[in-house]
Design a protein around this nucleic acid. Structure first.
Lengths: 338, 338
DNA sequence: CTGAAAGCGCTTACAG
DNA sequence: CTGAAAGCGCTTACAG
């Protein structure tokens, strides 16, 4: 059954009546060929349906022509635009894409790290998918790495691409205050040590400060960037009878839980409580009421990360930090009228 | 900067005072080693922080230990669960995952096919991501391929994994008829030649027939499996003043457009028109009203496809067709009361 | 249980 | 402009 036609460079050389070196040069345009030779090679390659073996090439050149992407997990609609951006950019540049998600760390065994300097030319790392020791190791051998939504561990200079979390958060909270006269605004934090969340909290605090509103610690609660956690967070505030007139939910997933908890408590949105999210996820406009949020250009992050990585791969310098602008998207949940 | 520590198997052999063959045997457990030798090898490997070079291995063995995934495009929340399933299953089995999306076919040039027998041990192909000539070629060299949501071109026996489209559609349409007494049910087709759509239409027709309801061709319209197309499709029916009391929208994305069009026409859902979707996308429960739909276990499709592919890779037989069960999810858009 | 050697399919100085 | 040959880092008969 297995016809195993696979022609090698030797077969082509033989058929074209030249040496394998010549075939290689034709393939890589690494030296000028006599027009007539080139034509013989071309036709031999076509006749044999030849395509070069990447592993052999890799072994000989130390280049793999593939980019590795390391994610914490591959679930969540969050990753769809990221993947789209990364796939598009790497494909355009002629790189293959190797993907690995580091969780779940299967029981006991030390973490597998199937993506490394052996099978990729560089790595794209999302949030905390790779631990500091591995990052340090890669850095010490000068291997190209670009971080997304995560800053480099101290002392390692690794380029980062992320979004304007702080100013996005600032602007949306400012909107709640300025346009809708809200003063007791809840902020729901994301997971522990999530840098996106930290920056958004800074923006939140900055906006309050700007308007002379003191930060009330009881208004800053845990949301976990997921709807269940956010639901609990709001429930908890309600139970403790803490007063608030707006919720900046940290991200859009949380906003789902926020909306549920508020409705269930008989509160009207936005009349009683304004709600705002972050991300502009696919479903943000479908919620009721449609969610005012900050658009996080995740696809652009993917694109840009690939471009930076390719610069490193080519031995050029990359930008230490790339920050993609965000944009407030006004819908009805904040109180705007459409 | 580039410390390039990369120890090779020779370094390990030297340090352990054995031959490279022994190292290789240790690595692959391909022959018993004297306990003491094994220990020397182990410690040498550890000291040098050795990890074998996949490309060299690949070249020597003709195995890559990686699975290729070919998608038409990598956008759409549809792919998130698919990817999750595929990534999890391949990772569990120790395979790497190489991903390529075939669209866009950049202007003019013949399609790039970066994933093939050279860099993968087998290919997972989603819908029509690969054309028949390429499928035929792969088949002729006995290369493992599994198709998802697409049947094999005639005469090629390639395993397929898909979902129970027809019975899912049958059951949900049956529900509209039986539970909600609907008789004039619109069906919105997906894109041309989409097999999911074809099978769902069969289920639709089967349910009507079962209840003695004649199929009215004017109720079968184009939806395109996207919200804009579906919006147009419904608009068009409305304009032509065609009467209907339910819409089975083909998929959930379409349902968004259906809901919009109906609301805009002042029709109440589900009082005036019942609506049902297919997929149970992430947002289905968030629509208003929450969407009654058929759960398509896309993640399981990914899982199963990997398992079938691995069987082929191991030289075992795979199941010609694997059909994953679907399940009707009742919410409010059909008229059910929760 | 272990070693010497050929081979996997390419690329790249070195020569001419 | 082209060729002969070494080398990339492994695996695997073949011997012993």
């Amino acid at each position: 059954m297995k016809t195993s036609n696979n022609a090698t460079i030797r077969d082509v050389a033989r058929l074209a009546g030249v040496s394998v070196a010549t075939i290689s040069r034709y393939l890589n345009k690494t030296a000028p060929l006599a027009a007539e030779t080139a034509e013989r090679v071309r036709s031999a390659m076509e006749e044999l349906n030849f395509s070069p073996h990447p592993a052999a090439r890799n072994l000989a050149t130390k280049r793999t022509n593939t980019i590795g992407l390391v994610l914490p997990e591959i679930g969540g609609d969050y990753y769809t635009p990221l993947l789209r951006g990364i796939e598009a950019a790497s494909s355009e540049s002629g790189f293959d894409l190797l993907i690995h998600s580091t969780r779940p760390h299967q029981s006991g065994n030390r973490p597998r790290r199937p993506l490394n300097e052996h099978n990729t030319d560089g790595l794209l790392v999302f949030t905390d998918a790779l631990d500091t020791p591995e990052l340090t190791r890669l850095n010490s051998i000068g291997f190209p790495v670009v971080l997304m939504h995560q800053s480099a561990p101290e002392s390692l200079k690794i380029p980062v691409v992320t979004i304007e979390n702080q100013s996005g958060a600032y602007h949306i909270v400012d909107h709640l205050i300025t346009a809708h006269n809200r003063r007791r605004i809840v902020f729901l934090r994301g997971p522990e040590k999530n840098e996106d969340s930290d920056a958004r909290e800074l923006g939140y605090r900055q906006a309050l400060k700007q308007h002379g509103i003191p930060v009330d610690p009881s208004l800053i609660a845990r949301g976990g960037f997921d709807s269940t956690g956010a639901y609990q967070g709001i429930k908890d505030l309600l139970t403790r009878d803490i007063q608030f007139d707006a919720v900046f939910s940290g991200d859009d997933d949380s906003a789902i839980g926020v909306l549920d908890a508020l409705k269930q408590a008989g509160l009207r949105i936005p009349e009683d409580v304004s709600v705002a999210g972050f991300d502009d996820s696919i479903f943000a406009g479908l919620l009721s009421p449609p969610l005012t949020t900050v658009r996080a250009p995740i696809e652009a992050v993917g694109h840009e990360a690939v471009h930076q990585l390719i610069r490193l791969i080519r031995g050029e310098d990359a930008d230490p930090v790339t920050t993609i602008p965000t944009e407030v998207i006004l819908r009805r949940s904040c109180g705007c009228d459409f």
